[in-house]
């Protein structure tokens, strides 16, 4: 049992984490810079946040991005969970190899290729590009990630729980709904969160599949970033960093508290026996 860090390990961790966090920290610090010159400190100010929050274009882009992320994550989670069930539970069926290929290929496909191919499809079938084309594109590549997340949980799921439900009178469908789904729910939620984040974060595929009037936040951010560093982008980035950080920390705290309570319960039960 290791209780302390040794010097070497402490040094690597410090440098590693500094490398990961310093760049983001600089962005956050300079988002409070009063000066327009991004590298010269001109005093503390929150004015850039006000400017960003009053910028219609950013707000519109943020709103459309959130809507796309919500719808596509939901679609991706449903489709991904279905695919996971097919992959883990269905055994052999005609076309299984093709199916597993189609599940795994998008994970390693360069975004530019995915984006290009979907755009070409939408052009070929004459679908107007906009909200729905981006949503479909995001759902398609996110469902593969969702499927991987749910599959790995499903693979370790104790099949006898389902057998027990069948034995007690459930149909296969109601056994899945009443027993399997609640038990794998944390994985399904993770899959949704991952899909949601992937969609929020995506620039390349959205750029290919978007149309007029459907500019997402990453697309807006990208066109601003190309013009260089600006305090507005610092403020916008800091807000996004803040939201994500709070979300992830909250999720992990809840998770850890549940785990700890479960451990305590188990220990108490063992002691009482």
């Amino acid at each position: 049992m290791i209780r302390r860090f040794n010097m070497f390990n402490l040094t690597s961790l410090t440098f590693g984490l500094a490398f990961l966090y310093l760049p983001l920290l600089l962005v956050v610090i300079y988002s409070f810079n009063d000066s327009r010159l991004v590298t010269v400190w001109g005093g503390f100010s929150t004015k850039w946040y006000g400017i960003v929050l009053n910028n219609e274009a950013y707000l519109a882009a943020a709103w459309i991005t959130l809507r796309i992320a919500f719808v596509s994550a939901t679609l991706a989670t449903v489709l991904g969970t279905l695919s996971a069930v097919v992959m883990v539970r269905m055994g052999r069926f005609p076309g299984r190899t093709l199916f597993s290929g189609m599940i795994y290929a998008p994970l390693v496909m360069p975004e530019v290729v995915t984006g290009l191919s979907l755009l070409l499809l939408f052009v070929a079938i004459g679908l107007d590009r906009g909200f729905w084309t981006i949503t479909i594109a995001h759902a398609t590549f996110a469902m593969c990630y969702a499927s991987v997340v749910v599959s790995s949980r499903l693979a370790s799921f104790d099949r006898s729980l389902e057998d027990a439900a069948l034995d007690l009178g459930c149909t296969p469908f109601s056994a899945f709904r009443q027993v399997t789904l609640p038990v794998i729910a944390p994985a399904v939620i993770s899959a949704w969160l991952l899909s949601f984040t992937l969609s929020l974060d995506d620039l390349v595929i959205a750029t290919f599949t978007s149309g007029p009037g459907s500019t997402t936040l990453p697309m807006k951010l990208y066109s601003s970033v190309r013009l260089g560093v600006s305090p507005e982008i610092n403020a916008l980035s800091s807000m996004l960093i803040g939201i994500v950080t709070l979300g992830v920390i909250a999720a992990s705290l809840i998770n850890r508290r549940q785990e700890r309570r479960q451990q305590q319960d188990t220990r108490a039960a063992a002691a009482a026996a």
């Binding site: 104790d158 006898s160 057998d163 439900a165 034995d167 007690l168 009178g169 027993v179 038990v183």
Partner: peptide, 29 residues
């Protein structure tokens, strides 16, 4: 099918539904 047989089974691993209370488990069938 299994769900329509007048036979019940006690599983090796007990297969208790982890998300349900003892009473819910017993009343499940």
């Amino acid at each position: 099918p299994a769900n329509r047989r007048p036979v019940n089974m006690m599983f090796q691993s007990y297969a208790l539904f982890p998300h349900m209370s003892v009473a819910k488990n017993i009343g499940f069938g």
